[in-house]
Amino acid sequence: MQITLEILDNIAQTTPLSEADWLREIAIALFQKELITLNRASRIAQMHQIEFQKLLASRGICVHYDVEDFEQDIQHLRVRGWL
């Protein structure tokens, strides 16, 4: 799925954010509302998950780490041969 976001000129001109900045802000907002997982949010933000976690921490945002996240992490470790 591809989503195109159009920013009104008056907002774009008064808010000096790059495309990467907008993606990070969208990812953070969706993650805070618990609409997406940490993994998905870091991919939307185009950041390594650890870097995204650091960004969240710098803003005082709690990382919601649940069983699904744990199971995904374990699966990724197995795929990479680390378990």
Rank of each mutant, 00 (worst) to 15 (best):
M1V: 03
M1N: 01
M1S: 03
M1I: 00
I3F: 09
I3Q: 11
T4E: 14
T4L: 07
L5G: 01
L5C: 06
L5R: 06
L5H: 03
E6G: 06
E6W: 06
E6M: 07
I7H: 12
I7L: 14
I7Q: 12
L8R: 14
L8E: 08
D9G: 07
N10I: 03
N10A: 04
I11W: 07
I11M: 11
I11V: 15
A12P: 01
Q13K: 13
T14S: 14
T14D: 14
T14V: 06
T15D: 02
P16T: 08
P16F: 08
L17W: 12
L17M: 07
L17H: 13
S18Q: 09
S18P: 03
E19D: 13
E19H: 12
D21T: 03
D21Y: 06
W22K: 04
W22I: 05
W22P: 01
L23K: 15
L23F: 08
L23E: 08
R24N: 05
R24E: 00
E25I: 00
E25K: 09
E25N: 11
I26L: 15
A27P: 08
I28W: 04
I28H: 02
A29M: 14
A29L: 15
L30V: 02
L30S: 04
F31Y: 15
Q32R: 14
Q32G: 01
Q32M: 10
K33R: 15
K33N: 03
E34L: 00
E34Q: 15
I36E: 12
T37K: 09
L38W: 08
N39M: 04
N39D: 11
N39G: 12
N39E: 12
R40Y: 05
A41S: 13
A41P: 09
A41M: 07
S42K: 00
R43K: 14
I44M: 12
I44L: 15
I44D: 05
A45T: 08
M47V: 05
M47Q: 13
H48E: 10
H48K: 15
H48N: 11
H48Y: 07
Q49P: 04
I50G: 03
I50W: 03
I50S: 05
E51D: 13
E51M: 00
E51L: 06
E51T: 10
F52A: 10
F52D: 09
Q53H: 01
K54D: 07
K54R: 11
L55I: 04
L56Y: 07
L56M: 06
L56T: 07
A57N: 01
S58A: 14
S58H: 14
R59V: 01
R59F: 00
R59C: 00
R59E: 02
G60C: 08
G60D: 12
I61S: 05
C62H: 09
V63L: 05
V63S: 02
V63E: 04
H64T: 12
H64F: 10
Y65L: 08
Y65S: 06
D66V: 02
V67G: 04
D69Q: 04
D69W: 02
D69N: 06
D69H: 02
F70Q: 14
F70W: 11
E71N: 11
E71V: 05
E71P: 00
E71C: 04
Q72K: 14
Q72S: 04
Q72G: 03
D73Y: 03
D73M: 07
I74C: 06
I74H: 02
I74K: 11
Q75E: 12
L77P: 05
R78P: 01
V79P: 01
R80Y: 03
G81S: 09
W82R: 10
W82I: 12
L83S: 13
L83V: 13
L83E: 13
